[in-house]
């Protein structure tokens, strides 16, 4: 236990977790927006849009996140020299957010689509019958109910996303798991405590998400 408390002085553990939280928040927004668009593609009456949505989900969902992250950093940045920001850290942070968003959008899409399946077909028919075309019917009638039915799978995706922010270490982003590695490297005698610190840190972030998900899914459920 000797030297454990000094770790908090020597390493910016809270700063590293704050990085994971920022990655989570931004990628949550990015993946939710893209995932919603993909879900609309997948339920649309236009065959080519459905094809695009299906192809995206099947490709991205089945590719390991690490591959997407490294592909961004090595190929898009390293080879194609596409730079979002001059600042090195901010640039890689942006790459990490994009990779996380692209990857989790496929899961968000499927979560929303499972929510759409909870909405009876008659709801869409009634919307069409009063003269709403596809997009307004989706926006006003189908998706609001689908999202309420998708709270639990969306919550699961958010939890997975939170933990997957550790993969950003592969894009040289200074987050908690990367910090863990260097702490262990220099303090191997404290390895167990370091592991536990990081693990408990993630639990503290993630457990409220689970509680919130359960609460929301009860509160928002559509009575039929």
């Amino acid at each position: 236990m000797n030297g454990f408390l000094e770790l908090f002085a020597d390493y910016d553990i809270f700063g590293a977790f704050w990085m994971n939280i920022r990655l989570t928040l931004l990628a949550a927004v990015g993946s939710f927006v893209l995932g919603t668009v993909l879900a609309i593609f997948r339920i649309s009456p236009v065959g080519s849009l459905r094809g695009i949505g299906t192809a995206y989900v099947n490709t991205i969902r089945n590719t390991p996140l690490t591959i997407i992250m490294v592909l961004g950093v090595l190929a898009v940045w390293g080879q194609l020299k596409i730079e979002f920001f001059q600042d090195f850290d901010l640039n890689f942070f942006t790459y990490a957010v994009i990779a996380l968003s692209l990857y989790h959008a496929s899961f968000v899409c499927e979560a929303i689509r499972s929510g759409v399946n909870t909405v009876p077909l008659g709801q869409a028919e009634a919307a069409r019958a009063i003269g709403l075309s596809f997009l307004p019917a989706a926006r006003l009638v189908v998706l609001p109910q689908a999202l309420r039915g998708a709270v639990t799978p969306l919550g699961n995706t958010l939890i997975a996303l939170t933990k997957n922010t550790t993969v950003a270490a592969a894009a040289s982003v200074a987050e908690a798991s990367g910090l863990m590695k260097s702490m262990i490297e220099f303090n191997p005698d404290l390895m167990i405590y370091i592991f536990l610190t990081i693990a408990i840190g993630f639990c503290i972030i993630v457990i409220p998400m689970g509680i919130l998900t359960t609460w929301l899914s009860d509160k928002l459920a559509v009575a039929r």
Partner: peptide, 20 residues
């Protein structure tokens, strides 16, 4: 089609009121 549908009222067997 949407415009023409607006001119045709429809009542379903299962009501289909917007549940939310």
């Amino acid at each position: 089609l949407a415009q023409l549908r607006a001119d045709v009222g429809m009542v379903f067997q299962s009501f289909n009121l917007f549940a939310h």
